[in-house]
């Protein structure tokens, strides 16, 4: 069961604003999904190693060799608020 407070906490971590209606709805839906997911706990997983990657590859590193960067104009072309050759953002303080 995931309650309103938890939904709001998680939404804050995920930087998602939710309306009151959305909080209600998510609380119900997430609870039912999580209840379903929790049937995993039927399994004894104590001796099982986790799998993060299914295909084993090795040495997937790159040499320290420069590659071309994007042109400045291209880099900033899609910026919502370009300013002073950079990406402008509002102050962290309200």
């Amino acid at each position: 069961m995931i309650d309103r407070t938890q939904v709001l906490h998680v939404a804050r971590l995920a930087r998602l604003q939710l309306t009151d209606d959305e909080v209600e709805r998510m609380s119900t839906e997430l609870s039912s999904i999580l209840d379903h997911i929790e049937t995993i706990s039927e399994l004894d997983l104590s001796d099982v190693a986790p799998t993060a990657h299914v295909v084993a590859s090795e040495g997937a590193l790159r040499a320290d060799a420069p590659r071309a960067s994007l042109d400045h104009d291209v880099a900033l072309a899609q910026a919502p608020d370009p300013a002073d050759d950079g990406f402008r953002v509002p102050s962290p303080q309200a």
Binding site: D84, G86, R88, V89, P92, Q93
Partner: peptide
């Protein structure tokens, strides 16, 4: 780069990221 008044985070209006 804090584009606002004080240079430190507090009191700044906006920032620009490089």
């Amino acid at each position: 780069i804090h584009a606002g008044a004080s240079g430190r985070i507090h009191g700044s209006e906006a920032s620009v990221v490089d």
